[in-house]
Write a protein that binds this DNA or RNA. Structure first.
Lengths: 188, 188, 188, 188
DNA sequence: AATGAATGAGGGTTCATTCAT
DNA sequence: AATGAATGAACCCTCATTCAT
């Protein structure tokens, strides 16, 4: 693995453990097993690793989506799988996701956010387009894709914000989110 | 205005302008017009102002909601007003909201989050309960209230994340969010 | 002695011992007996002490001049005293003078240099004006004052640059400088 | 051009632009178009380029002197040419000259300074010796040569120290320096 | 001879917090 | 209650130098 990749992984790991502001560059390089100065050969500043990490996260989310959703299943089942998949990713990486937002805001251009999430939105947009005959009339696939992802992510977040580590409560939140979405899309 | 209040307001203003990590206690006290040491008479640490600010924000959001939504209007119109109201609040205070999340995560107990948002959720829950006859069967008012607020907040956020400062795009996002919600609730 | 003064003195001492670049702020504060951060209450950066030190040096030079030159003595004797005085100051503080130049160049406005040296030039200009009847015709007191100080300082410098620590050589350089100046002024 | 020469030229150029302490080895090698490590094949340390640069500068000054001064002209005219020539060199290379002094002081033996300037002093000494019949009696050519060069250099420096970028002021300073020197030498 | 990625000690600066007044 | 000068630990980043290729 090349040094840059090592640094991104190390940063991901340390950020996850300590949070954005508590993480020292010295922690990252120690984790990566390289010298302090080496970090700055690849990133101009501490915050500059953030986009790389964000990239990494979105890729994971997309991969999980594609792996979880079975295109052959009936639409409602696929929707449930989408909810399931996003809940899972958020559950696994919520610490990262949380500070990603903060981190990216601090680094210069937020427009990167759009570019980052683009593949995810595109995927969902195409999903909706493919299934449009089964959805309510007049549904705008672009806008809806975005709102839908935001909605599910947020619902998944709430599980943690409200300390519902309780298995049953989590399942319920998932279920309710699914129903919410199902109706929002006007699935017939 | 007493000193504590002055400090909270000053902190709010400075956080808004500079973000959480960039804000120095010295900025806050300068803005408040008190001496450096005075801060520590009222708050044990820098992060300790956060809950007070969060409180303040949620109160504003609630106030706006109550002011905007007309209980006499037909349900769809009220829904549109809710969307409108939350979009407005986020638009006005998005910087604060953004880092509130971060700030609270860093301070000890996140459970405060629940307590903070409680009035908002309660209000919406009661709203849904009042209108249940007009909504889809089996709708759980507690869960749905939360998901719905998360969904709208997130949609409002996207306006900024994707730099849609464009008036028309913003209006469209609002409109689509409204339709999304309307169907999700199964409004008859 | 107030803290600022303590810092200037300490900086002077440490710079003298270690040179500009080798001096750490930590050295200065240790010497001054204050905490690291205290330095930055009085000076925005390490280089910012330089003007204060320069001021101090010029004052010393001026004081020595006034103390050494006897206005009642015949003109040539006074000239010799001026040379003597400047040589002495340079000899005592050459390390400081050397890096002062460097230091000030690095800090923003060199125009300070003019302001710094002003009292010295003024003094010499008045000296020349007082004695004009004894000097060559057409001598411009302003320009000549400056050139003369530069000339003597440089000659004094050379004593060190060329390692003429030899007593006799030094005396000779002084003598030659005096004669040089005497003729340059056209002393009758 | 061989690599060593390329490095010296590059160092000269970069030092000129950025000053001694601000110049990084990386700047030098970039300018020279060689790799970082290559520098250390030719110079044991960053400071080790300094003597080579100093050499280069003195050579330029000497060359200019020889090119400017017309031995067939009357002595006063030649003096004026000397002043002119040194002012020019300082004007063109003052940044280098300024830090050369600093740089050399920092590198081990200052005695190099003497060796460096030797050709210049020798040239002027011979100039004075050649013209001794036209100069005041008892003039020591060795000492005077040195003092004279120092005096002119310093006067030229003052043009910059005091921001007299004004054409007219510069001309005046030159003129006054010439008269100063002319009398100091006792030109008949 | 040439490369350039890697090193890592080092220092300037920041800023939350304290405490004597 | 209020002050604000002083504290000093903490940390980011620089950059001269090395060394395996």
């Amino acid at each position: 693995m090349d040094t840059q990749k090592k640094l991104v992984c190390a940063a991901l790991a340390v950020f996850k453990k300590k949070g954005l502001e508590k993480t020292k560059v010295s922690d990252i390089v120690k984790q990566a097993g390289v010298a302090q100065g080496t970090f700055y050969l690849y990133f101009p500043s501490k915050l500059a690793v953030m986009p790389a990490i964000a990239q990494c996260m979105v890729e994971k989310m997309e991969a999980r989506l594609k792996a979880t959703v079975n295109p052959a299943a009936p639409l409602p089942e696929q929707l449930a799988q989408i909810v399931e998949s996003i809940f899972d990713t958020v559950q696994k990486h919520r610490d990262i996701l949380a500070f990603l937002y903060t981190g990216l805001s601090q680094s210069a251009d937020i427009t990167k956010w759009e570019r980052l999430y683009a593949p995810l939105y595109t995927w969902l947009k195409e999903f909706l387009t493919r299934n449009r005959p089964l959805l309510r009339n007049g549904l705008d696939t672009s806008y809806t894709a975005r709102i839908m992802i935001g909605c599910i992510e947020q619902a998944a977040e709430q599980v943690f914000l409200f300390n519902k580590i309780d298995e049953q409560e989590t399942a319920r939140q998932k279920e309710e989110t699914f129903v919410f979405i199902e109706h929002a899309l006007g699935v017939r």
